[in-house]
Design a protein around this nucleic acid. Structure first.
Lengths: 149, 149
DNA sequence: TATTGATAAAAGTCAGAGAAAGTCAAAGTG
DNA sequence: CACTTTGACTTTCTCTGACTTTTATCAATA
């Protein structure tokens, strides 16, 4: 018996393929279709549609809410995916700075975009005292990278 | 199924565009047209036509009353500074999204830069469970805005 | 003519219901 | 043990309706 999570994963991936790389789902609808609890969908997304695997996910709650999943086309920039994967889940400000310089040198981002990256992942923005700021920094920088591939 | 609030939002924005930046509506009339309660109009205005988002709203009650919505067009860097100043130290994801849409509409940022903003301030990146994520979000977005002035 | 007061015609407020998605830990499976 | 599945509980966003406040109108009165 195939595992439910894999069935759902395949289903969503089919949807994405059909829809040319971007799809908007309703959690409850899919849960109903596969006869499972809604949080199962979260499990699938959290484990199968991560930034490292090349997906950009955003969502909205409330009436008429949705989950949007975008497949990033690794096409020309596998270097970018390599970068994303090399970041891990914790990055200091200095290491982040090195990444940004690299992105700029390779002409993956413009000067202005480099400034935006810097601003977003600086301690000034994220907060100095936060004990898990390096985790947040890693998540932000990866999310930003994947969003422009 | 499109959300009512977004339909009404779009309707009003179209009116504003057609009318060159200022429009006067009657709450009851619009509620009747969209078959909803009048207070729905207040909800739309309170969440979509705020000062931070570049609108100035005034109204009169009583017979012949109205709601006047004016688009405040401050261009370029002065709009950025206006934004920075009007952002308090806490911003929800929804409000952040509204800012980003406006920045894009005013052509202050590109599509790619809008994606970067979105990716940087999303709950997905900052973390949903974090108690002070709205503070971090505010700090990040302000820092990013300042970086491109 | 000027004032008053009743009635009608707006818009505003706010709490609660409804509609989604998110979290987390416990239980199940192989 | 690692991975999957479940469900109770939480958070966010939207929509509704009862009630309040403000303004206009107009007839009655001073």
């Amino acid at each position: 018996m195939p595992k439910l999570c894999e069935v759902i994963e395949g289903f969503i991936k089919d949807m994405i393929k059909e829809a040319n790389g971007i799809v908007e789902i309703q959690r409850n609808e899919i849960a109903t279709r596969f006869n499972c609890v809604p949080s199962q969908i979260n499990y699938v997304i959290d484990t199968r549609f991560t930034v490292e695997q090349g997906y950009y996910v955003e969502s909205r709650r409330g009436g008429g809410g949705h989950i949007r999943i975008k497949e990033v086309h690794v096409g020309g920039s596998s270097y970018l995916m390599h970068l994303v994967n090399s970041i891990g889940n914790s990055v200091s400000q200095q290491v982040a700075e090195a990444f940004i310089i690299n992105l700029r040198d390779y002409n993956i981002i413009s000067d202005r975009e480099a400034a935006l990256f810097r601003a977003a992942v600086s301690d000034k923005a994220i907060g100095n005292s936060l004990h898990d700021r390096d985790h947040i920094r890693a998540a932000i920088i990866k999310n930003m990278l994947i969003s422009i591939v």
